[in-house]
Computed example of a mutant assay.
Amino acid sequence: MTTTVVPGVADVAAAAERIRPYVRHTPVLRAEVDGRPLVLKLEHLQRTGSFKMRGALNALLTGERPEQVVTASGGNHGIAVATAAAILGVPATVFVPATVPESKARRIEAAGARLVRAGERYAEAAAAAHKAAATPGARYVEAYNDPAVVAGQGTVAAEIVADAPEVDAIAVAVGGGGLAAGVTLGSGGRLTVAVEPERCSCLHQALAAGHPVDAEVNSVAASALGATRVGDVTFGVLSGSSVRSVLVTEAEILAARDRLWDEFRLAVEPAAAVPFAAWLAGAVPGETACILLCGANAEWTP
């Protein structure tokens, strides 16, 4: 029987030191919206345009450096792995589904990786990538189901706690759960509000079932949140912690995205607006919540 390794708080602290030379300490923006205080973590300003850079770097800086890197991605993770591999001088191959947005595909190639299109869904691209990674000297970098990746993502929460200690809840978008799990570890005991689209909700369904299950993937935010099944590592963290699972509609996501632009001139991809949609709907508790804007890799004009 395989035992799932679950990262801890110390792993997040170690990751922060490991990746510090390569990532940005992204700013927070304090605001008042609809008469309520709010903190926005502007992680969409991170290198590669999303939080994924943190986990990819920590994974590649942990253990022996591989001869080549292989991964599968709906877009943001692939851009991050391609960039992290380039920083370390390691060739990278990124498998993507046919549904990957062209803007993300271009960024993967621009970062220096070889792009391979495989299948219609992320799961099919991942299967092809795992097969390719069987080559000696190659390493497969998981998008979320890896302790080092989760620990790397948790460094964003450590920054929030340091810069905005008044925050009592952190709302994050969920795909495979790597960011939510990392935030839970790095937030100093604050409530994690894990938000998903109604039609892209593998964590919500896993928590209801008591174990990871396959879920539908059909959302405007699917390129970033399109995991069909939450990972064992991420589920191990999230199921054993104080986490609130929230669902939002497609209309709420798009309205939240538009409001971020209209009110703050923050241009983010739909996935990044998912937690803000939950906050606008009153589903994020606390006196002062933080909304983590996770990415901006989309070609969008309001």
Rank of each mutant, 00 (worst) to 15 (best):
L38H: 03
S187M: 01
G226D: 02
G35F: 08
P165A: 03
Y144R: 03
G78S: 06
V69C: 11
D11N: 10
A72N: 08
T99H: 07
C200G: 06
A169R: 01
G236F: 03
P37S: 01
G182C: 10
T93G: 11
A215R: 08
V12A: 01
L29Y: 14
H44R: 12
L61P: 13
A181S: 08
A256G: 05
L293G: 01
A72V: 08
S239G: 09
D34T: 12
A127E: 10
T26H: 10
F95G: 07
S103F: 15
P165C: 06
A143K: 13
V237P: 09
Y144L: 02
V150W: 14
A221Q: 01
P66L: 04
T93I: 12
A227D: 05
A169L: 04
R117Y: 12
D168Q: 08
A278T: 06
P285R: 13
R229K: 15
A13R: 15
V116R: 08
R65L: 15
V6G: 07
F51I: 07
V5I: 15
L38G: 00
L254A: 12
D146P: 02
A194Y: 06
F264R: 04
A251F: 14
A133D: 05
A72S: 12
A129V: 09
A13G: 13
H211I: 11
Q68E: 15
G282V: 07
V172G: 04
G75F: 09
T93W: 10
V141E: 09
V161W: 02
A215T: 06
Q46Y: 08
S223P: 03
A283T: 11
T3P: 13
T62F: 05
E67M: 14
S239T: 10
R117I: 15
A221I: 03
G295D: 05
V156A: 07
A138W: 01
T26V: 14
L260W: 03
L57H: 03
T135V: 15
T192F: 02
A221L: 00
A171Y: 13
A173L: 07
V195R: 05
G74T: 04
P270M: 04
A133H: 02
N76E: 08
L38N: 00
A256N: 04
H204A: 14
E124I: 05
A138T: 09
E198H: 12
E299D: 15
G49P: 00
